[in-house]
Simulated assay, not measured.
Amino acid sequence: MAEPQIDTLQFPGHLIRRLHQISVALFADHMARNDIDLTPVQFAAIDALAHEPGVDQATIAARIAYDRATLGKVIDRLEAKGLIRRDISPEDRRARVVTLTEAGQSLLNKAMPIVEALQSEILTGLSPAEQVQITTLLTKATQIGDRLRRAPHRAQTGSQKEF
């Protein structure tokens, strides 16, 4: 008797990867249509800074669940675009703190409604109730699995904000 065929294209990991590709493509398309030069990670970083200005890069990485070493390159690009500023920490002269510039806040204000609006497009074809359900399940799976990651999410103290 032949082994039953396993459809690896239906594995959760594959489907999550595909949905991520769709999400990133939609984000890029919407940003380009609105003449906004931001990647999803850059958006997450400036959004985190808007909520918690004056933190170090490691804190930003923790807030958006991103690898600290890789985030350094993201911060470099944001600084080159004039969206953030790095200053010497008043508490530790060896450390740098990061703040959003006026240009960064302005770009975030422009991008936020676009990003909010495209969220339902990522899950197009699902009813509003199904969109809530999948978001709830993805949140649950992410929070449980987060402890296994190299760059786990660390919420702002006293905040339930998730990125």
Rank of each mutant, 00 (worst) to 15 (best):
D76R: 06
P152V: 02
T124A: 15
D92E: 07
A111Y: 04
E91S: 15
P53E: 10
K110R: 15
L71H: 01
L49A: 08
I6Y: 11
A58R: 12
T39W: 04
H30S: 05
R86P: 03
P152G: 00
I88Y: 12
L15E: 06
L137S: 05
N34L: 02
I46C: 06
I36P: 01
E130I: 01
I88K: 14
R86Q: 13
E116R: 14
A155P: 04
G125W: 12
E102C: 07
R68E: 09
Q42M: 08
F27M: 04
R96I: 00
L38V: 03
Q133N: 06
S23N: 07
V97K: 04
S127N: 09
G104H: 07
A58Y: 11
S89K: 09
T59S: 11
L78T: 02
R63F: 10
F27C: 02
A45T: 06
E3T: 14
A80E: 12
A32P: 00
Q133Y: 07
G104E: 06
R63H: 15
L19N: 08
D47T: 12
R147W: 04
M31D: 03
E121Y: 07
G145S: 11
H51T: 08
I75N: 00
E116F: 09
P4M: 11
E102L: 13
I75T: 01
I16R: 10
H14P: 00
Q105N: 15
I88A: 14
A32L: 07
R63G: 08
R77I: 04
I134V: 14
Q21Y: 09
I84C: 06
T59Q: 11
Q156R: 14
T136P: 00
P128L: 03
R94K: 12
L118S: 05
A50M: 10
V24A: 02
P90V: 13
I22C: 05
P90L: 12
L118R: 10
V97F: 07
A151D: 07
I75V: 10
K81I: 01
G158R: 05
Q156V: 11
P4E: 12
Q42I: 03
Y66D: 01
E116C: 12
L15R: 12
A32R: 10
L78R: 04
A95N: 10
T142F: 14
E130M: 12
Q21H: 12
G145R: 10
R86T: 09
I16H: 08
E52H: 15
E162C: 10
A151W: 00
H153T: 05
T124P: 00
K73V: 06
T124K: 15
E162K: 13
S127I: 09
F27Y: 03
Q42H: 07
H153Q: 11
L15I: 08
A62R: 05
Q119R: 15
I60N: 02
P53K: 07
V98N: 02
S127H: 11
E121P: 03
Q57K: 09
H14W: 13
